[in-house]
Amino acid sequence: MSRSRALLSDLPEARRAVQGAAGPGRADALRERLAALGADDQDRLLLDLVRTHAADALGHRTADQVRATLAFRDLGFDSMASLTLRNRLNEATGLALPTTVVFDHATPAALATHLRAQLRPGGEQITAVLAEVDRWETAVEALAPDDDARGRVVARLRSLLWKWDRSEGTATDAVGDDALTLATDEEIFDIVNKELGIS
């Protein structure tokens, strides 16, 4: 499918978004603009950004052809279009979005919400940490229940949580340093999931 940048450049809103995706400092300018807006206007700006670049990736004349709540799959996105959109959003925002971002956030509205979370202070760090937790969770699930390695993982988690709670001055200190030592493996994993917001 061919893309027509010339057609898009005729549209003021598309031209602004595409221009904002190229050249040094454009991502910083976007962040500054977002910082000056309220939450609703931030959402609108980022949704416009996603829809404009999605329209460009699909070869549409206008962003109006990209419905905010329609799944990318139903909009006609394939792997190549998804990669094109990811690359354009990386350029526009300065983020390092994964190649699966369009599949992870099924609609333009959901992707815009994700971008807003990423662009807030500390957003990228939080996402990076949670990605590591996901990888950790996958690795732990592969361990046999009676594997000695599971005990080593649990001991490490106990140590990590103890340090974390201690630095934050949470209730663990009030209970005593043995609080986590007395917890079962299942309780430890439950604590980790709750602390990191994993249901």
Rank of each mutant, 00 (worst) to 15 (best):
M1T: 05
M1H: 02
M1Y: 05
R3A: 12
S4P: 00
R5H: 00
L11F: 07
P12W: 15
P12F: 09
P12G: 10
E13I: 03
R15S: 14
A17D: 11
A17C: 10
A17E: 03
V18W: 15
G20P: 03
A21S: 13
P24T: 15
G25K: 08
D28L: 14
D28P: 13
R31V: 05
E32I: 07
A36D: 14
G38W: 03
Q42S: 10
Q42K: 13
D43T: 13
D43N: 02
R44T: 07
L45Q: 05
L47I: 02
D48A: 13
D48V: 06
L49I: 06
V50L: 04
V50K: 01
A54L: 08
A54H: 04
A57R: 01
L58G: 01
L58P: 00
L58F: 08
R61K: 13
T62E: 12
D64P: 13
Q65R: 15
V66M: 10
R67F: 07
A68T: 09
A68Y: 10
T69H: 15
T69L: 11
L70W: 12
A71R: 15
A71S: 13
D74A: 03
L75E: 04
L75W: 00
G76S: 08
F77M: 14
S79W: 11
M80T: 03
S82I: 01
L85A: 05
N87W: 10
A92F: 01
A92Y: 01
A92V: 01
G94V: 04
A96I: 00
A96N: 08
A96G: 03
P98N: 06
T100I: 01
V101Y: 09
V102Y: 02
V102F: 01
F103D: 05
D104N: 09
A110N: 01
T113I: 02
L115V: 04
A117I: 02
A117K: 04
Q118T: 12
Q118N: 01
G122P: 10
E124F: 06
A128I: 11
V129F: 06
V129M: 13
V133A: 05
W136Y: 07
W136D: 10
V140C: 06
E141V: 07
A144S: 03
D146S: 11
D147F: 03
D148Q: 08
R150C: 12
R150Y: 04
R152N: 09
V154N: 05
V154H: 02
S159K: 07
L161N: 05
D165I: 00
S167F: 12
T172V: 14
T172A: 07
A174Y: 08
G176Q: 06
D177V: 14
D177A: 10
D178T: 11
A179K: 06
L180E: 09
L180A: 06
A183E: 11
I188V: 13
D190H: 14
V192A: 10
N193R: 15
